[in-house]
Design a protein around this nucleic acid. Structure first.
Lengths: 191, 191
DNA sequence: CGACCTATACTGACTGGTCAGTATAAAAAG
DNA sequence: CTTTTTATACTGACCAGTCAGTATAGGTCG
């Protein structure tokens, strides 16, 4: 095995960086190959197609995100769990901004071949939030309300996190976390 | 068989519908022409280029959104204003889902020719929220905190709105609005 | 050893097709 | 007679995917 190790990794890394700024359709396989320092043929040796390459990328990234969230919640209960989840998600967005951008751009597309895969992973991540919310709010309306509130919290963290990193990066992380937590603490609408 | 007026409108409408599902790069000018029931030449007679077409589309859409928000807030103060804004944004997302999807996909892209235009409009819309928040929270940390909380609220409404419309459309609007308002009312994290 | 084979990893020129944008001539509309 | 639109044909760049060939490592057999 010549340059065996690292090729797949290099391809995935290059793909993520390019896709975060140019989008998936706007990223070409030639660019990926060049950025990864690899011949175009290697892309197709390691991945069946452009679609599969992006499917694996999303699978890996969103899967890792769900794992991070599960770990962050482990052992905690009630409001402490939810607060830990919010901080963990914000940290993850900061340390993998490219993936966060990609998620924001792709999560509501319904015409992709990997739609099912991404949907399942997204659901997994949101469920961690929904469970924590169900626990933090005992007087819950049963059905899907916790799921809606989960996407509300998730959306708040994702958008303000990206707003911070893309348009106002000098700001300190703690300031951003404080603002998000503050907005859910009842100061805006609570009684 | 030309139509005197309405060509530009038909082109913009077709563009929005196609771009919402296929993305901007994935939408071709030939498709737009076909969907609009118009010759390709008319596209280039009315818009200088593909980029300009999308710039005008975004300009119109996000501009109208900002107007809607300003109207929703007019005359109201404090928490009532913020609640009205949340409801107005959710309604707007429901009545123009295509634009909401497009916004979610494009808002953090920094490689577009129209970047400046979209940034300014996005800022306009967020400012309406930030002003309402500054008013609702008199004990405010001065600087950009209100801006951060504004994007937090905006993100919550955008993501849960799209979650509802794309993945769970049978649900009633009021249920979604209630869940969002609930999540900001302090039930999750408040003291 | 060394001749031969096989499997895996990778290369880069090439192909077939797609798409933004252009050109043009003629018809409709005001 | 000017503006707008239509229909069609074309160009040139770009791009996903292919393929014949190269490189390296590890058997196996005499």
């Amino acid at each position: 095995m010549p340059r065996a190790t690292g090729t797949k990794r290099a391809i995935l890394d290059a793909t993520l960086e390019l896709a975060a700024t140019k989008g998936i359709t706007g990223t070409t396989m030639d660019e990926v190959a060049e950025r990864a320092g690899v011949a175009k043929g290697s892309l197709y040796y390691n991945f069946a197609s452009k679609d599969r390459l992006f499917e694996e990328l999303l699978q890996e990234g969103v899967g890792a995100l769900a794992d991070t969230l599960r770990e962050a919640r482990a052992g905690l209960h009630g409001r402490a769990a939810l607060e830990a989840l919010i901080r963990a998600l914000l940290d993850r967005i900061a340390s993998n901004t490219a993936l966060a951008k990609l998620m924001a751009a792709e999560i509501f597309r319904t015409d992709r071949t990997w739609q099912k895969t991404l949907f399942a992973l997204r659901h997994e991540a949101l469920t961690v939030f929904a469970e924590a919310i169900a626990e933090a709010k005992p007087g819950s309306r049963d059905d899907g309300t916790c799921g809606l509130m989960a996407s509300s919290v998730f959306g708040a963290v994702l958008l303000s996190g990206l707003e911070w990193l893309v348009f106002d990066p000098e700001r300190h992380r703690d300031e951003v976390a404080a603002a998000i937590l503050d907005s859910f603490s009842g100061g805006l609408l609570g009684d």
